[in-house]
């Protein structure tokens, strides 16, 4: 037997940074433990990278540079999109469904803390994704002319844009509908959204694709990795998406 519990009241919230850290660690753990989330976060990007490189070699495709150099920036963009948009939307949808957000709403954790915790969890999972994908790419012979500011800004603004869109979806639809729509949009953007392949390869649709958040993120990552450049135009597109989606989310999100 352990010591008797001292049940006398001694209420109080932990300091906000500690609460945010606890929330971020909890959400990151749950994300990495969930099979479907892991599939989307790691397995698909790895398959796209390896499969794309092998296919390009076998079919002798002309991508303008070595297949791994051509594909890796887009696969990194895909990894960012999968976590910030699809995983976040599905997880948040089910948190609403299972009254987790309502439960935490009566805890000392304020809504701002919940939001910061989610951002922290996203960044932690993305770090794992970026390390895995980049390590694999380097092993396959990736030699980027990397602009760290360019890639960093793309990841941050891309995460802001996609996370706001994911929360917008999860905040108004039922959990099942969120699951379906988040996966569908992910597939559509993966194939037609200029995330893995450059917008220039989409012909007449390329101009539109570059204005999608997927296309803008892909183009910004390619500019950073191919030319060591900061793609201000694409970053601006991402920022506009982030602001518009965040405003809409703030207006429409239902916590319960």
């Amino acid at each position: 037997m352990s010591a008797p519990l001292d049940l006398s009241p001694r209420p109080g919230g932990a300091p906000l940074p500690r609460q945010v850290l606890a929330q971020a660690r909890m959400e990151a753990r749950l994300m990495l433990r969930n099979g479907e989330q892991l599939l989307i976060a790691l397995v698909i990007p790895v398959l796209v990278l390896v499969g794309g490189v092998l296919a390009a070699q076998r079919l002798d495709l002309d991508l303008g540079r070595s297949p791994v150099d051509a594909l890796t920036p887009g696969v990194l963009a895909l990894a960012v999109m999968s976590t910030a948009f699809t995983s976040l939307a599905i997880a948040t949808g089910f948190e609403r469904r299972y009254h987790v957000i309502k439960r935490l709403g009566s805890s000392p954790l304020p809504r701002l803390g919940l939001l910061l915790g989610k951002v922290g969890a996203l960044l932690a999972v993305q770090l794992v994704q970026l390390v895995v994908v980049a390590a694999l790419a380097l092993a396959l012979g990736w030699r980027p002319a990397l602009s760290l500011p360019g890639a960093g800004l793309a990841v941050v603004l891309g995460t802001a844009a996609f996370a706001s869109l994911g929360l917008l979806l999860a905040g108004v639809l039922r959990a099942e509908a969120t699951l379906a729509v988040a996966n569908l949009v992910y597939l559509l953007l993966l194939t037609g959204g200029a995330v893995v392949l450059p917008a220039a390869q989409y012909g007449g649709f390329g101009g539109v694709a570059a204005l999608l958040p997927s296309g803008a993120l892909g183009e910004a990552m390619r500019a950073a990795a191919w030319d060591g450049a900061v793609a201000w135009g694409s970053l601006l597109v991402l920022a506009v998406w982030a602001v518009v989606a965040a405003v809409l989310t703030a207006r429409t999100f239902r916590w319960d």
């Binding site: 352990s2 001694r10 932990a14 606890a22």
Partner: peptide
Amino acid sequence: ALHAHPLDPGAL
């Protein structure tokens, strides 16, 4: 962990 002086979770 969200509280300042929680009960010991294991004992509870």
